[in-house]
Design a protein around this nucleic acid. Structure first.
Lengths: 254, 254
DNA sequence: GGGTGATTTCCGGTCAGCGGGACACCGGCA
DNA sequence: TGCCGGTGTCCCGCTGACCGGAAATCACCC
């Protein structure tokens, strides 16, 4: 991928160097990973620091700055959804005491918007902002099952990455799973990511009734489903209500 | 304030139009509030949308995009601090059932990094990302009391905004309060923002022992202090420990 | 001490960005 | 139905902000 010509493009390729695995970088690292000449990198970074989009820590390494965080929390996902959902997620966590997750769909991926874990949580596979394919996660199946038709088609025709022998691997299996998710109103992703856990997910609906997010709980294999499923579904409906969703027939359009 | 000449500067003045009060805007609004010509605004916005820094919602209004959120959560405040602190904040919330807040200092202001509130919380004075002056809040007093000397001096010599008759109004009063905060290891901000609440705050320390953040609980006036103070202080210490802080004499430098 | 790598500064050529203006679109109003 | 104010999109010739090679400076570590 060649470096974009526009400054904004260059600035964003620079920012893209920062990931969950590499939350800080030196100037040269930024230059190398972005493919930009060193002097150009230097000039851009200096301006980004001036705008507090980047910050320089005590060791001279650069990190994402407070300004970007402030802007980021204004995004609808964080502002509305997360704020409304958090109390209910806490309730769900309180009851189950396992990883609780809230996620939205971004094209053909799941993006985790919030995650609650115990202090001594074992697996930290997901964190805020991390991404996963749709077909292998509980939240992903819920989100995909209620996604627009063209998205579903594209997802079905994309090679399905296998994480374990239990990961859904064929398009027909995926289609069938999606149908049952729509029918049942929840999804179960059984050992699709790790061989020792499964997750139970339920939809979160906006005021119009369309699915805008999904909640899930990841539990060890030996946990009985009926001990968590009702709680997850109730949590999904509670968040939906808090977002303005109403049960019953939709209000007729004028 | 004239519009900056550089593109990055213009892009950031554009992004600065988005605030907690105005989380979405139309193209013309962006042009008006940023002071940029419409055609320039249009060009910049188009590119920002292409990079997913902005998004266009169903009504054609622009909002902060998912990409900015993803970058923002990589900032040290969100990534390390918030992630580690959240479980303990939840515990504190569980015990007190009042607003729980985690904040850091940005120059002469407090920035709230996390806030937990009941579903039916009454006052939503603060949210994630909102700012307050240092002298009027519990967290602010804690953060200021342990800030570098020059920051304290500047804060003391800044006009102190009064919110209620109880707000600290003179520099001597502020100095005395800071001294007692350092001595006691916690701060109480009594009716300084609202006349019907007070807040109790405690420091959060990093591995080196320096104060990197502050926790607080906002409680109604009739609440007895000794029912929340120990919990808040314990919470602050618990988060500090989770960040790598150790009690006892600091490891001698080689 | 000198070799290596990271960081910062400089400067003349040039192309990305600028913005006025023309135009299409929409909803309200008479 | 035609008018009108507000909004969003596009075009195009001029120009100064940006580019990046090169060289100076700094910070370490054999």
């Amino acid at each position: 991928m060649p470096v974009p010509r526009s400054i904004l493009g260059r600035a964003f390729t620079l920012l893209a160097v920062f990931t969950a695995d590499r939350p800080s970088a030196t100037l040269s690292e930024l230059s190398r990973h972005s493919g930009l000449p060193l002097s150009t990198t230097h000039r851009l970074v200096r301006e980004l620091v001036a705008w507090r989009a980047l910050e320089r820590d005590a060791d001279g390494r650069f990190t994402i700055g407070l300004r970007l965080w402030e802007l980021g929390v204004l995004s609808p996902g964080a502002l509305d959804l997360r704020d409304r959902a958090l109390p209910y997620l806490e309730d769900l966590f309180e009851v189950t005491h396992h990883n609780v997750q809230l996620a939205i769909r971004d094209d053909l991926e799941v993006v985790y918007v919030e995650r609650l874990a115990a202090k001594d949580a074992v697996s930290v596979l997901t964190r805020m902002g991390s991404r996963m394919p749709l077909h292998a996660t509980g939240v992903g199946l819920v989100l995909l099952a209620h996604a627009p038709h063209d998205v579903q088609e594209r997802a079905v025709h994309t090679p399905l990455k296998r994480f374990t022998p239990h990961t859904i691997g064929t398009s027909t299996a995926l289609r069938e799973t999606l149908a049952s998710v729509r029918r049942d109103g929840y999804a179960i992703s059984d050992r699709q990511i790790e061989p020792i856990t499964y997750s139970v997910a339920a939809p979160v609906r906006g005021p119009d009734g369309d699915v805008v997010a999904a909640v899930s709980v990841v539990v060890p294999l030996e946990t009985r489903t009926d001990t968590v499923l009702p709680a997850v579904r109730a949590c999904g409906r509670a968040i939906s209500r808090s977002l303005g969703w109403r049960t019953g027939p939709p209000t007729p359009k004028p």
